[in-house]
C-alpha cells in the first residue's frame, strides 16, 4: 500500500514539475507580452529533438543545456520576425498566430524525425532504480526534480537580482510606465520570450529522457499550464509556480484512490478557484481582468 501511494505521489510530483516548467514559460510570455503562446508545447518538443540531434556531439550534459538554448534562439527569431508584429493588435491575432506556428512546428518535427517515438538516451548513472522496493524512484527522476528546482530558482533569481529581470517584472506590473522610463520594451519582450521558450526546451529534454520524444509530446502539457496559471492567479509568476505544484500534487493525491480522476481534479480545482476566488490563489485585484 505504501508503495502504491508513493508510486502515485512520485508520478504526480514528476508531472507537477513539467506543469511548473511549462506554465512558468507560458506565464512569463503572457504577463509581459499579453500573448497566449499556443505553440509552447511544440517548442517543448522541438527542444527535445534538438537535444537528440546535439547529444552525439556534445554528450548528454552538454546537450542538456545546448538543446534548450538552441530552441530559445529559434524562439527569439520567431518572436523578432513574427510575433512582435501583433503585440499592439487585438489579442485574437496573437492567438491565431501562435496557433498556426504550433501546426507548423509540429508538422516540421513529424517530417524531420518521424511520427513515432524516439528514445533520448540518458547516462546510465541516472537510469538505475535506487532500491528494489521503490523501483519507480530512479536516479533520473530525482535528477529531473533537482534540475527543475535549480531552473526555477535560477529564474526567480534572474527576475529578482538582475537588471533585465527587475525590468521584466516591472513591465509585467505596468508596461506603460516602464516604456515611459525609456526602457526598450521590444527588446525586453524578445529576451523574455526566449527565456520562456528556453524553459519549454528544458522541459522537452527532461520529458524526452522520461517518456521518449514524439511530435505531440507537449500537447498534453499545454492545457495544464493554462490551468496552473488560472489557479495560481494571472499576472503572478509566484502564483503560476504555486498553481503548477498544486495541480500536480492534487493530481497525484487523487490518483491514489481514483486513478482516472487525475485530470478531472485539475478542472474541478479550476472551477472551484473561479467560483471562490476568481483572481486565483496569488492573483492581485485588477491585474489583467
Amino acid at each position: 500500500m505504501l508503495t502504491l501511494v508513493l508510486f502515485n505521489v512520485t508520478n504526480g510530483l514528476i508531472l507537477g514539475m513539467f506543469y511548473v516548467l511549462m506554465a512558468l514559460g507560458v506565464s512569463l510570455i503572457l504577463n509581459l507580452s499579453n500573448v497566449i503562446n499556443f505553440a509552447h508545447g511544440n517548442f517543448l518538443a522541438l527542444g527535445g529533438y534538438l537535444t537528440f540531434v546535439l547529444e552525439p556531439y556534445l554528450g548528454y550534459w552538454g546537450a542538456l543545456l545546448a538543446g534548450p538554448i538552441c530552441v530559445g534562439i529559434i524562439g527569439l527569431i520567431i518572436e523578432r520576425t513574427a510575433i512582435r508584429r501583433v503585440y499592439d493588435r487585438d489579442p485574437v491575432y496573437s492567438l491565431l498566430l501562435t496557433f498556426g506556428l504550433a501546426f507548423i512546428i509540429q508538422d516540421l518535427c513529424r517530417t524531420i524525425w518521424g511520427p513515432n517515438g524516439l528514445p533520448l538516451s540518458i547516462p546510465n548513472a541516472l537510469n538505475s532504480p535506487l532500491s528494489q522496493q521503490f523501483f519507480f524512484i530512479t536516479g533520473y527522476r530525482i535528477f529531473l526534480i533537482a534540475v527543475v528546482i535549480v531552473a526555477v530558482a535560477a529564474l526567480f533569481g534572474f527576475l529578482t537580482y538582475t537588471r533585465v529581470g527587475t525590468r521584466i517584472r516591472a513591465g509585467t506590473f505596468d508596461i506603460e510606465t516602464v516604456s515611459a522610463l525609456g526602457i526598450n520594451i521590444g527588446l525586453l519582450r524578445s529576451l523574455n520570450f526566449a527565456v520562456g521558450i528556453f524553459l519549454a526546451g528544458l522541459a522537452g529534454v527532461l520529458a524526452g529522457g522520461q517518456i521518449g520524444l514524439n511530435p505531440n509530446m507537449g500537447d498534453d502539457l499545454l492545457l495544464p499550464a493554462f490551468i496552473a496559471i488560472i489557479v495560481g492567479g494571472v499576472g503572478s509568476l509566484t502564483g503560476t509556480l504555486v498553481g503548477g505544484l498544486v495541480i500536480g500534487v492534487a493530481s497525484a493525491v487523487t490518483s491514489i484512490w481514483w486513478p482516472a480522476g487525475s485530470e478531472v481534479i485539475m478542472y474541478i480545482l479550476m472551477i472551484v478557484v473561479l467560483l471562490v476566488r476568481p483572481r486565483g490563489i496569488m492573483g492581485e485585484e485588477g491585474v489583467m481582468t
Binding site: 491575432y93 491565431l96 501546426f103 507548423i104 516540421l108
Partner: peptide
Amino acid sequence: MSFIGMIFVAVV
C-alpha cells in the same frame, strides 16, 4: 498541417 499553419500565419 504546415499548410494550414501557414494560412493562419499569413492571415494574421
